[in-house]
């Protein structure tokens, strides 16, 4: 991406500010930040497309380390190489570091405070709403491909993870195999129609 100095600086600042705010709002684990990142970087800023976001999620899930950190490294790299990755990972790491440094001092007060525990419980309803909104849109797009294979993959993967507790790694690995098989069958199909 070729940009002049000023807009480059602006983009890096936006990258830092966005990852910082998203990281500070990520209550409830790795896939929450993926939902927020999709809203911010796909819908709002239009830096990447939706498929890219899903690919980044798959890579982030398959790499060691927390998903938010991994996803921001890949996104940062995409936006501005090594510098972008550094900026994004700094933005994502700072909020938990700051929060823990503060909470470590006031831990007892924090744990026993009634209002905080109520707020944290009800906030989950909002987090769930955000994820469902994102999942809704993503599902529409999977259905729009009109490929039975993709819809089947989605449904079976959901049943496997949610009801049967199959790990995400196994799901991703299985889908890579399915994808490779799909590709090989396509080539074979094309050759047959040609010959």
């Amino acid at each position: 991406m070729k940009t002049n100095g000023k807009s480059k600086g602006k983009m890096l600042w936006q990258l830092f500010a966005s990852t910082f705010i998203l990281s500070a709002s990520t209550f409830g684990g790795g896939f929450v930040i993926v939902s927020l990142m999709k809203e911010k970087f796909v819908e709002k800023l239009k830096w990447i497309d939706e498929e890219e976001m899903l690919d980044i999620t798959a890579i982030a899930q398959s790499s060691p380390g927390p998903i938010p950190i991994n996803a921001s490294i890949i996104l940062g790299y995409r936006m501005h190489g090594l510098v972008g990755a550094l900026v994004a990972v700094l933005g994502t790491t700072l909020p938990p570091v700051i929060i823990i440094s503060i909470i470590a001092v006031f831990y007892d007060w924090f744990r026993e405070n009634k209002y905080i525990s109520v707020a944290l419980q009800v906030m989950r309803a909002g987090v769930a709403a955000v994820i469902f909104d994102v999942v809704w849109k993503l599902t529409e797009n999977v259905v729009a491909t009109k490929r039975i294979l993709y819809m089947a993959v989605m449904i079976i993967a959901f049943i496997a993870t949610f009801f049967l507790g199959v790990s995400a790694m196994i799901i991703i690995f299985a889908c890579i195999i399915i994808g490779v098989a799909d590709f090989l069958l396509n080539i074979k199909g094309r050759k047959e129609t040609k010959g």
Partner: peptide, 11 residues
């Protein structure tokens, strides 16, 4: 083939 599975993981 991987993307629908990621949707399922998020769901």
């Amino acid at each position: 083939a991987l993307r629908p599975a990621v949707v399922a993981l998020i769901a």
